[in-house]
Design a protein around this nucleic acid. Structure first.
Length: 225
DNA sequence: GACCAGGCACATC
DNA sequence: GATGTGCATGGT
């Protein structure tokens, strides 16, 4: 096992010991996970939950329901998630794309090899790498590592990546360092988010962070240092 | 009131 | 190809 693999696994153990298994998105339907993946773009999950509740209350959480709903009405329902106009368009792009070949069969759409599914998702305007990977991992339940701003910030501060490393480079690092296990990828990402929310914030210091036992620079990636 | 949140596409240089 | 900008609500 390489030094990086070793450190990443030790970091996981430390995070999990602090937060416990996160069981992310476990109770939701595939449809909710896909819709949530778009709604959570640069947005707090608490806001996304409100928008999902609105969609559920109007029985709109299906491919065909969203495909036929006028964009302005959809925008109104997802308002709490922020960026509601652009996200309404992105949701429409997604459900229209699925509906074209699969009708209401989201599970059929998702049930393909991870690589092919990812490429297909990336062809939809409004679905970028993180959103695609979130859908592949959490909705399709296939092993792909999700990189987000927390992943970047935490790995940077722990000297595991360089400042200029891009999404695919970081994803490659994680996938080549960690065993390809669905539950590990799922929970590792969730643990990083928990660290990011609670300790490794953009400006605050990282006192009490369970990852402090590893070599790190709390100021890495900050503009004001 | 400022800061931040589980990004992405597009314009501009 | 790198960098900057618009999109917007709600919790802390």
């Amino acid at each position: 096992m390489s030094k990086t693999s070793d450190m990443l696994m030790q970091m996981y153990q430390a995070m999990r010991a602090r937060f416990g298994h996160q069981n992310w998105w476990g109770a939701d339907t595939e449809m909710e996970m896909c819709v949530g993946a778009i709604l959570t773009q640069n947005t707090n999950w608490g806001n996304v939950k409100m928008a999902l509740a609105n969609l559920k209350a109007t029985d709109a959480l299906s491919i065909s329901a969203l495909a036929t709903m006028p964009a302005p009405k959809l925008a109104e329902l997802i308002k709490p998630a922020g960026y509601f106009n652009i996200k309404a368009k992105r949701l429409k792009n997604f459900v229209t794309h699925v509906h074209k070949d699969w009708g209401d069969d989201l599970r059929g759409f998702l049930d393909r090899p991870a690589g092919a599914l990812r490429e297909d998702l990336l062809s939809v305007n409004g679905i970028g790498r993180e959103t695609a990977d979130s859908m592949v991992l959490y909705a399709a339940r296939k092993c792909t590592f999700v990189v987000d701003t927390y992943t970047y910030r935490i790995l940077l501060r722990h000297h595991l990546i360089a400042r200029e490393d891009d999404y695919e480079t970081i994803k490659e690092l994680m996938e080549s360092s960690l065993p390809c296990e669905l539950d590990l990828y799922n929970d590792y990402h969730a643990q990083l988010v928990a660290i990011g929310k609670n300790y490794c914030r953009p400006t605050a210091q990282c006192d009490e962070c369970p990852l402090n036992v590893f070599p790190h620079d709390p100021n890495a990636g900050r503009e004001d240092v």
